[in-house]
């Protein structure tokens, strides 16, 4: 069985990534020494992975979804004359990968023909746990790749934490705030906390400065697939739907009965979210 290299850059997702790799081949985790500034050095990471992939004649390299993963994939593909498929949600044993396209309105199934296959993989995908622990390779910090040695990291500032709520990408339930909240996140947070849910947001709520950008759901934010997604005061533009239409159930609360979100909601509530959400939170707490 061929090696499937998987980059382990997030301790909380190591087991998940190794299990996903194990479902398609022999899983090999790769840990790379270095801090958050590695995000600005995808070529350096790609160089280290290329050497390892060639040494081991690996069949595939799995990378995290997102800009950093896509850039490592792009530069690894360039280096090895290989090809990359981003944002995959499933990989068959023959390495055919499924990914959403066209803002989540369609799925493509595609295969890398010949040579190494490189994928960026959505977080939170389920795979059977490994029968035995996987091999993990620890790589020393590589020297900066050509071009990237000219990129200087001038500063590194920690960002606000999520207030102890579950991680958006692993949460079973997400309550998301949109423009319709008017900037008052109280009702959204009340319902989220009653349900043990994560808080998300639409782009409008993030751009208004009401919610941290790391919580944005949609084309330019995160793609989530919780069991339940509650859209509060979110009209549901296609760019937002691209990030959440894979949710198990969708509940929408909006004052505008014409909001596009109602077209994909399993339960639509036309009304004032400032009244509906606290009442729903109280009912959940009373159970």
């Amino acid at each position: 069985m061929s090696d499937i290299l998987t980059l382990l850059d997030d301790p909380a997702r190591e087991a998940e990534r190794l299990a996903f790799a194990g479902a398609i081949g022999r899983p090999v985790g790769v840990r790379l020494a270095g801090g958050p500034e590695l995000a600005a050095r995808p070529g350096t990471v790609a160089a280290a992975l290329a050497t390892l992939a060639v040494e081991r004649d690996a069949a595939a390299v799995l990378l995290p979804q997102g800009l950093f993963g896509a850039e490592v994939a792009a530069l690894l593909a360039l280096r090895l004359g290989a090809a990359a498929i981003t944002d995959v949600v499933a990989i068959d044993p023959d390495l055919t990968a499924t990914k959403p396209i066209m803002a989540g309105t369609a799925f493509s199934r595609a295969r890398v023909t010949g040579g190494l296959a490189i994928f960026t993989v959505q977080p939170g995908l389920e795979a059977p746990p490994l029968a035995e622990p996987a091999e993990v390779v620890e790589l020393a910090p590589p020297a900066a790749a050509a071009g990237e040695d000219r990129v200087a990291v001038l500063g590194l500032t920690p960002r606000a934490a999520s207030g102890g709520r579950p991680d958006l990408l692993s949460a079973e339930i997400i309550v998301s705030a949109g423009r319709g909240t008017g900037g008052d996140l109280g009702p959204v947070e009340q319902l989220a906390d009653a349900l043990g849910a994560a808080v998300g947001a639409s782009r409008a709520a993030v751009d208004a400065g009401w919610v941290d950008p790391s919580l944005q759901v949609g084309q330019t934010g995160k793609t989530v697939s919780p069991r339940l997604y509650v859209a509060a005061g979110i009209s549901g533009a296609i760019q937002h739907q691209a990030g959440m239409r894979g949710a198990g159930l969708i509940v929408a609360v909006n004052e505008d009965p014409e909001a596009p979100i109602f077209e994909i909601a399993d339960l639509g509530i036309v009304g004032d979210l400032g009244e509906v959400l606290p009442a729903a939170a109280a009912a959940v707490r009373a159970l």
Partner: peptide, 10 residues
Amino acid sequence: DLDAWSLQLA
């Protein structure tokens, strides 16, 4: 902006 960090790059 990353989830946990902001990088200033030049």
